[in-house]
Amino acid sequence: MLASPTRMAAPQAAAALLAQMPDVVWRGNQMGSYRAVTTPSGFTALDRELPNGGWPASVLIELLLAQPGIGELRLLAPIIASLTQARKTVILMAPPHIPFAAALTELGIDLTHVLLVEADKPADRIWAIEQTLKSTSFGALLCWLPQCRADHLRRLQLAAAGCEGLTFVMRPANAQHESSPAPLRLACRAAPSGQLSVEVIKRRGPVHAQPVILPLAVPAVLHQPFAERVRVPDFSVTPDHAVDRPQFIATAARYRTALPA
């Protein structure tokens, strides 16, 4: 029995339609794509697992950490270095520890284009992130959110869709089992020999089979005795690199609409 011309043309028509909308419709067994331009992560093995081969702009990228400081800044160091060397601002929003400026400099990061913002209250952090996402002048935003409600994440995802920068949200590993509007989520854990295990737990593509083990660069300054470490401008004392916490809170209280705690 011969198939009718209509039945033969249907699969071809469907394939043609999908080809015209690669960033809107994707099949679960294939890698999807993003409308925004992506930027290589600096790790070939990781780029192979990311849709479009890199970090996507205009979306939330969640890094779920077993604990803060396990290597998230070294994971993002290649893209931060590239952006700051291109004179684009990178914003560190409420990191749990003040970054070691000498180590960042050794990783190729230009500190004159890095801005550190401190905020203790979750509502202040959400407000500050939203204000940043309304700007088109930043290259990347890195924010640490130990506490964040699902409705706040949805607001941040909507805000990120309107900007061209990269938005990384660092959250605890136990948030892996919570729903999230972020289209890209990675679980990061420490691995032997200073490496980092990265598992893609959500992406536009097939299920990620196993974690990628990435060899992170370790700045030589970290191997030196503390007293002998080369000093560069410190984030904690240089006004160009930090926002004073009392002033920030006063500004937040004056201009933002109240957010639920």
Rank of each mutant, 00 (worst) to 15 (best):
M1Y: 01
S4D: 08
R7A: 13
R7T: 08
M8P: 00
A9G: 01
A9R: 14
A10R: 11
Q12Y: 04
A16E: 11
A16L: 12
A16G: 05
P22K: 05
P22A: 07
V25R: 07
G28E: 09
Q30L: 14
F43Q: 05
W55Q: 01
P56T: 10
S58H: 05
L60D: 00
I61P: 00
L63Y: 03
Q67F: 09
P68C: 04
G69P: 03
E72V: 06
R74I: 04
L75I: 08
P78V: 07
R87T: 12
L92T: 09
L92I: 13
M93Y: 03
A94E: 07
A94K: 09
P96Y: 11
P99E: 09
F100I: 14
G108Y: 08
L111V: 09
T112Q: 15
H113C: 09
V114L: 14
E118T: 15
D120W: 10
I126S: 03
I126E: 11
W127H: 09
Q131Y: 04
S135A: 15
S137E: 12
L142D: 02
W144S: 06
Q147F: 14
H152I: 01
R154T: 14
A159W: 05
A160F: 02
A161Q: 13
A161K: 07
C163D: 01
E164S: 12
G165N: 04
F168P: 02
V169W: 03
R171D: 02
H177N: 13
E178V: 03
P181S: 11
P192I: 06
P192N: 04
G194R: 06
E199F: 02
K202S: 02
L214C: 09
P219N: 02
A220Y: 07
V221C: 15
L222M: 15
H223M: 15
Q224W: 12
P233M: 13
D234Y: 03
F235G: 08
V237C: 08
V237E: 11
D240K: 10
R254G: 00
A258N: 02
L259G: 02
P260A: 14
A261D: 13
